Lab assay of single mutants.
Amino acid sequence: AQASVVANQLIPINTYLTLVMMRSEVVTPVGIPAEDIPRLVSMQVNRAVPLGTTLMPDMVKGYA
């Protein structure tokens, strides 16, 4: 199964992502692939992302 990117903490709206904020986990539904974690660093979330939430492409500015 493919691992997705999951929030490792509460990520406030407009926060620039860093490695410590994200982890990879096999979840349903599938979100942003874990292999894209390096690409996500320094990208901004466009909403608050609670701890344990799967990151979806529409949550990250400029990802989709």
Rank of each mutant, 00 (worst) to 15 (best):
P57M: 09
M43C: 03
G31Y: 02
T53M: 09
V5E: 02
T53R: 10
P12A: 13
P12I: 04
G31W: 02
V20K: 12
R39M: 11
S4Q: 02
V30L: 10
I13H: 14
A64V: 06
A3G: 14
A7T: 10
V26F: 13
A1K: 03
A7V: 08
P29T: 11
Q44F: 05
A1L: 15
V30C: 03
M59L: 07
R39N: 12
M56Y: 07
T18D: 12
N46Q: 15
V41T: 12
I13Q: 13
I37E: 04
P38Y: 07
T53Q: 12
I37K: 05
T54M: 07
Q9L: 10
V49T: 06
P57R: 11
I11W: 01
V6H: 02
K61R: 13
G31A: 05
V26T: 09
G31I: 02
A64H: 12
T54A: 09
A48C: 03
T28A: 07
M22C: 02
L40G: 01
V45H: 00
N8V: 10
S4W: 02
L19F: 09
V6A: 04
T54V: 10
Y16K: 10
P38R: 05
M59D: 15
A3T: 10
R23D: 06
T18V: 05
R23L: 13
L51E: 13
V49P: 01
N8S: 11
D36Q: 09
M43I: 04
L19E: 12
V49S: 02
D58G: 13
M56T: 09
P12S: 07
M21H: 15
K61A: 15
M22L: 07
T15C: 03
G62I: 04
T53P: 01
L19C: 04
G31H: 02
V45Y: 00
E35P: 10
P33E: 07
I37R: 07
I11K: 00
P57D: 09
S42K: 12
D36F: 13
Y63N: 07
V6K: 05
L10E: 15
E25I: 04
Q9C: 04
M21K: 08
A1V: 12
V45A: 06
I32S: 01
P38F: 09
K61Q: 10
R39V: 05
P50D: 12
Y63S: 05
D58P: 10
Q2G: 15
V41F: 07
D58N: 11
S4R: 02
Q44H: 06
G62S: 09
S24Q: 09
V27C: 03
I13K: 09
M21D: 12
Q2C: 04
P38S: 07
V27R: 06
D36H: 10
T15S: 13
A7I: 07
L19G: 10
G52L: 06
A48S: 14
Y16Q: 10
G31N: 01
D58V: 12
K61F: 09
R47P: 02
V41P: 04
I13R: 08
S42H: 14
M22R: 00
S4D: 01
R23T: 09
I37P: 01
Q9M: 15
A1Q: 06
A34V: 12
A3D: 14
P50C: 04
S4F: 02
P33R: 14
A48M: 10
D36S: 11
V27Q: 14
T18C: 04
V49A: 11
V60S: 01
V5S: 04
P12F: 08
L40T: 01
P33G: 10
Y16E: 14
E25R: 03
Q2F: 12
M21A: 07
V5D: 01
A1E: 15
N46F: 06
T54D: 01
G62M: 10
Y63F: 11
L55D: 01
E25Q: 08
R23P: 01
G52P: 00
R23M: 08
P33M: 10
V27G: 03
E25C: 03
V6W: 02
Y63I: 03
T54Y: 02
D58M: 07
E35N: 05
L40P: 00
M56A: 09
T53K: 07
T28V: 12
I13D: 09
T54K: 04
P29V: 05
V49M: 05
N14C: 03
M21Q: 13
V6E: 02
P57S: 05
T28C: 05
V20L: 07
V26Q: 11
D36L: 05
G52S: 11
S4A: 04
K61V: 15
D58W: 07
L10C: 13
E35R: 04
Q44N: 07
R23H: 08
P12V: 05
V45Q: 01
T15V: 14
L10P: 14
N46P: 04
P29E: 09
T28R: 02
G62C: 05
P12E: 13
Q44R: 07
T15W: 08
T54W: 02
I13A: 14
T54G: 03
P38M: 06
Q9E: 12
M56N: 08
N8Q: 08
E35T: 09
G62D: 10
N46V: 09
Q9S: 10
K61Y: 14
V45G: 01
I37A: 11
E25N: 07
E35A: 08
D36G: 06
N14S: 07
K61G: 09
P29N: 04
R47M: 15
Y63G: 06
V20S: 15
G62E: 14
G31K: 01
I37N: 01
P29A: 08
M56C: 04
V6S: 03
M21N: 09
V30H: 09
N8K: 12
A64M: 08
M59E: 03
Q2V: 11
T53E: 09
G31V: 02
T28D: 15
M59K: 02
A7N: 01
A7K: 00
P29L: 10
T53G: 11
I37V: 11
S4E: 00
M43V: 07
L40D: 00
G52K: 06
V20C: 08
M21F: 09
M43F: 12
N46R: 07
K61W: 08
Y16V: 15
V27M: 06
L51Q: 15
P29I: 13
M59C: 03
S4P: 01
I13W: 07
M56F: 11
I13F: 12
V45I: 13
M21S: 09
Y16H: 15
R47L: 13
L55A: 01
D58R: 04
L51D: 11
A64C: 07
Y16D: 08
L17A: 00
Y63D: 04
I32L: 08
T54L: 05
I13P: 13
V41E: 14
L40Q: 00
N46H: 13
V20P: 14
P33N: 14
A3S: 15
N8W: 06
T18R: 04
L19S: 11
V41M: 07
S4I: 01
P50H: 14
L19M: 11
I32W: 02
G62T: 04
